[in-house]
């Protein structure tokens, strides 16, 4: 028994440990180091997480990360099951047939106080998978135009054009909520 164990140790365990060590050195040190260096060289902004800074160099958010907006003068993002916690992202994991989803949707619709006959785009009442979806659809942004225009004292058609212009920077279909709000703030300094 002891002899078998000794043989196994020299014939199997030691080679296994050597194989483990060599793969750790290459896959866990060399490989990430190369990719890190490439990232810092090729795409330093996104490699560090696509953060956005204000003019004083303070971090105000992530380009790709939704942040909470509740004030009327800002466009609002999709609902977040994680409450926009970017250090603990999560979806609702509710079944589409779960009536809890209906209750949540009713509350969310109420927050938008829609006029009768008006339908609200689905992305504004459903939570995204990560809870951090930075986008809303173009329709969802246009839907919010009257509220934002009123709060900011802007002309609705001008704001609508600004939204469309923002959408055209990418596929024409999606709006990055944080970037659009930043544009609005930049256009009308407080």
């Amino acid at each position: 028994m002891f002899r078998t164990l000794m043989i196994w140790t020299t014939a199997e365990l030691f080679p296994s440990m050597r194989a483990a060590l060599s793969t750790i050195l290459v896959c866990c040190i060399a490989y990430p180091a190369v990719i890190w260096a490439l990232g810092q060289g090729l795409t330093p902004h996104t490699a560090d997480g696509s953060l956005i800074y204000d003019k004083d160099g303070r971090t105000i958010g992530g380009e790709r990360i939704a942040q909470a907006f509740t004030r009327p003068e800002y466009f609002w993002p999709r609902p977040s099951a994680a409450d926009y916690n970017a250090a603990g992202a999560a979806g609702s994991n509710l079944s589409p047939a779960n009536l809890r989803l209906r209750e949540l949707a009713e509350q969310r619709i109420a927050a938008y106080t829609p006029a009768s006959e008006e339908t609200i785009p689905a992305d504004l009442v459903t939570a995204s998978g990560s809870g951090l979806d930075p986008h809303i659809t173009r329709e969802a942004a246009l839907y919010q135009v009257p509220r934002v225009a009123k709060a900011r004292g802007l002309d609705e058609s001008e704001l609508r054009a600004a939204v469309q212009q923002h959408a055209n920077k990418t596929t024409g279909l999606l709006i990055n909520v944080l970037l659009l709000n930043l544009e609005l703030d930049a256009a009308v300094p407080e």
Binding site: G91, L101, A105, E118, T119, I120, A122, V125, T126, A127
Partner: peptide, 19 residues
């Protein structure tokens, strides 16, 4: 679960999805 609510759902089921 959203059937019958005033929600425009032409994109299919969006719960748990990224746009």
């Amino acid at each position: 679960a959203l059937e019958g609510l005033p929600v425009a759902q032409q994109r299919g089921n969006l719960e748990g999805k990224e746009l």
